[in-house]
Design a protein around this nucleic acid. Sequence first.
DNA 1: GTTAAAATGCAAGTGCTTATCATGAGCAAT
DNA 2: ATTGCTCATGATAAGCACTTGCATTTTAAC
Lengths: 139, 139
Amino acid sequence: MQVLIMSNLRWTRQRKLILDALKERTDHPTAEQLYHELRARGQSVSLATVYRTLRALAREGLLRELHGHGPDRFDPDTSPHYHFRCRSCGRVYDVAVPYRTDLDQVQVGPGFVVTSHEITWEGICPACRGEGSGHGKSG
Amino acid sequence: MQVLIMSNLRWTRQRKLILDALKERTDHPTAEQLYHELRARGQSVSLATVYRTLRALAREGLLRELHGHGPDRFDPDTSPHYHFRCRSCGRVYDVAVPYRTDLDQVQVGPGFVVTSHEITWEGICPACRGEGSGHGKSG
DNA sequence: GTTAAAATGCAAGTGCTTATCATGAGCAAT
DNA sequence: ATTGCTCATGATAAGCACTTGCATTTTAAC
Ligand SMILES: [Mn+2]
Ligand SMILES: [Mn+2]
Ligand SMILES: [Zn+2]
Ligand SMILES: [Zn+2]
């Protein structure tokens, strides 16, 4: 199945594996988490390739990169939506608040060109609430 | 002059210098930028101390840390407000959009505790618009 | 001034990510 | 199916952005 029709990327075994593994998840994993997931399944992929692939697929618009506190995370959902970040475990969750198109029209100031906006909530996630005093890093 | 009345931090020469240097700026500098600024003024401060001081003062609520793409940045303004990040130079600017207190009341989901939110716009800043094809790192 | 606790500078260490480069695999034309 | 060009991968080194350990000051309280 040809998925990279519009791109000039080759559809390799590793890229299939990595993109599939990401699509199975809704917790916005880090490159390293994806790497461990694949190894656990007995699939052989190098960490460098995981990073390279994720960046490449992001450039092609097939996934989205999230930056913030700690290592970068990756999102298989490229549609506009917002996030919650747990300041205990770092996990990122989708937030079901409607996307505000009007915020992309905001005039930041003279000479500024706005291309996007994002809203991120911070706090503690359910997984960390029920974890003693929770200073976990599980996610 | 005792500024750290409420805190248990000692008011050292380095901390004065670092906080003053930060307060003079509105571009949310990185630790390294502050470090170079101070050196340029002939003030002797180590990079480790700049980092330690900024983290310590942030913990005390005297300044704010900003995370995102690239190195952490620091903001002398601790009041609630939003930011614009230039994806060319990385500089961060304040955005004069009124703070939405209601967004801190958003129910992310069952078991989630929200402590704050932030909105960040992305795009190109005026400094980078007028820079040829601008792929600068000046900020 | 003495003194105990805390801060600094230097250098080494860590975590995340990218670069290098020899080898292997995808893809299109034979 | 084979060839050949080009791009991708794996292994590992290097790079960047911090962080930490520790001996040596400094601070601030007596
Ligand atoms: Mn998402
Ligand atoms: Mn600000
Ligand atoms: Zn959590
Ligand atoms: Zn800029």
